[in-house]
Design a protein around this nucleic acid. Sequence first.
DNA 1: TCCCGGATAAAGTCATACGATAGAAACGGG
DNA 2: CCCGTTTCTATCGTATGACTTTATCCGGGA
Lengths: 252, 252
Amino acid sequence: MRDSSRARMLSPDRLFGQVAHKLAVSIISGASRAGDLLPNESDIRGEISVSRTAYREAVKFLTGKGLVEARPKSGTRVAPRGSWNLLDPDVLAWHFEADPNEKFIRDLFELRLFVEPSAARLAAQRRSEEDLARIEAAYRGMTVNPPYAELTVQADLSFHEAIFEATRNPPLQCLAPAVCATIQWSLFLKAPDDRFFFTASLVDHERVLDAISQRDGDLAAARMSGLVIDSLNSTLRLLAGRASENASRGRD
Amino acid sequence: MRDSSRARMLSPDRLFGQVAHKLAVSIISGASRAGDLLPNESDIRGEISVSRTAYREAVKFLTGKGLVEARPKSGTRVAPRGSWNLLDPDVLAWHFEADPNEKFIRDLFELRLFVEPSAARLAAQRRSEEDLARIEAAYRGMTVNPPYAELTVQADLSFHEAIFEATRNPPLQCLAPAVCATIQWSLFLKAPDDRFFFTASLVDHERVLDAISQRDGDLAAARMSGLVIDSLNSTLRLLAGRASENASRGRD
DNA sequence: TCCCGGATAAAGTCATACGATAGAAACGGG
DNA sequence: CCCGTTTCTATCGTATGACTTTATCCGGGA
C-alpha cells in the first residue's frame, strides 16, 4: 500500500511513527471508540515497550489530525469522528488499512464526482505543455503495463494527480491525495482478471486526456464525470459481488 | 479570530502549541522558506526559552500537517508548499493570520464554487427536519443581528456548516472548515458599512434556504452558485479597492 | 442543598544522557 | 592537484526521572 514518492506520509521507521500508526489504526478501525481509551502515559510503558517521549510525540502527531484530544487530569481520549481530518493523507491511508467499509468509499466517490470534473475543466484551461506532457505520459503508463499491475496503478494515480497539478490551485491540489486514495482503494478491490472495465477505463482516460489537450474545459469536465461514474459503477458492482460472496460464505 | 466551539484547533495555552503556532506563522508567512531553516534543537533554548521536549512536540504537530520534515541528523527543514495540507483547519487559520494574499483567497473561492453547490444539492436531497431547523436558525441569526457583527458572522458560518452536515458525507464535511475560513476572511475584509452587499447576501442565503426547504437539489445548487459568485465578486471588489487605496497611500 | 477548597491523578514541561548516523572535514593515495 | 576514503562532529531519535500545571473529584462548611 505504501507508495513511492507520491506522498511522504508518516515515516514508519521512526518509533513514534509506529506508535502513531498503531494507535491510529486502532482508533479508525473502531477498536477504540470515542471515549476515554488511550492508556495513560505512565502505564504505556507496560502496554507497549516504548518510552513516554515517543508515545507523547505520537499523540501530538495524532492530535494534529484531530484523532485524539489530550486534556490534563482527564486523560487522552479518542476524538469524535466529526473532528477527524478525513482528507489528511495519513488518515486516508489508515482508513484504507483499517476500515474498508462501503459507505466511506461511496462518500469518497461522491467527493470525487464533485471535484474532479471541475479540476479537469481548470486543467484544460490552464495547463502548460509540461502539464499536458505529464498527463499524457501517465496515460501511456497505463497502456503499456498489464492491467492492475503495480505500475499501472501508479500511472493511473499520476494521471489524476497531474490533472490536479495543472489546475494551479494549491488548496484544490490538496484533494488529490483523497482522489488517489479512492482510486487505489477501488483498484485494490478489483479482481485482476476484470479486463472489461479496465479497457473501458482506459478509453475514459484517453477521452479526458484528449479534451484537456484540446483545451476544451467543458468537454474535459463532462468526460471526467463519465470516467468517475464508470469507475464508481464498476466499484459498486465489485462491492456487491463481494457482499453476496460473503453472504453465501456466511451461510455455509 | 478564535471562534467558539466551531473547530477546536490548536490549544494556545499549551506551550508546545505556542511554539507550533510561532513556527507555523513564520513558515506560512514566508519568513522561513523551504530550506534548512528551523534552528536546531539545541539552539532552540537560546532562541525561545523552551525545552527541547516542547519544541520537538511542536515539530511533530507540524510534521503531521506537512509543514516541516525532520530528517535524522540532517536537520529539520521547512517542507515545500506542495506538501502542506492547506485544507487543515489549523493551517487555514495560520494562513489567515500570516499571509492574506489575494491569490489564495481566489483559490479558496474557486474551491467553494466547486464544492458548495454540490453540497447544497445533497443537503436538499438528504436533509432531515433537524438539519433544516439548524440551517433556518442560522439564517435567522444573520437577520436579527447587525451586519458584520460577530454574531452575524458566526451565524453565517453556521449556515454553511449546517449545509455540509446535512450532506451526511463525512469526507465532504471536512471541507467545511475551508469554506468557513474563506467566508471569515472575506467578511473580515469588508468595510462594516458595506450595507448593499450584505442585503444582497442575505437574499442569496434566503433563496438557498428556500430551495433546501423544498428539497429541490438542482435549485439549491444553482442558488448556492449564485451566492458564492456574489460573495466572490464583492470580495474581489473589496480587494481591488484595498489595492488602489494602498497604491494611493503609497504615492503620498 | 449549594458552594468552596483541598487532595489527587494525569498530562505538560524540563533537564540530562546516550545512541545512531548523515554530512562535512580531514586525510592520504594517485 | 584531484578524488576517494576515513574520521569526526553535529543533530536527530530515544529513554528516564523529576518537577509543574491543570482539572476533576470529593468532602466539609455555610
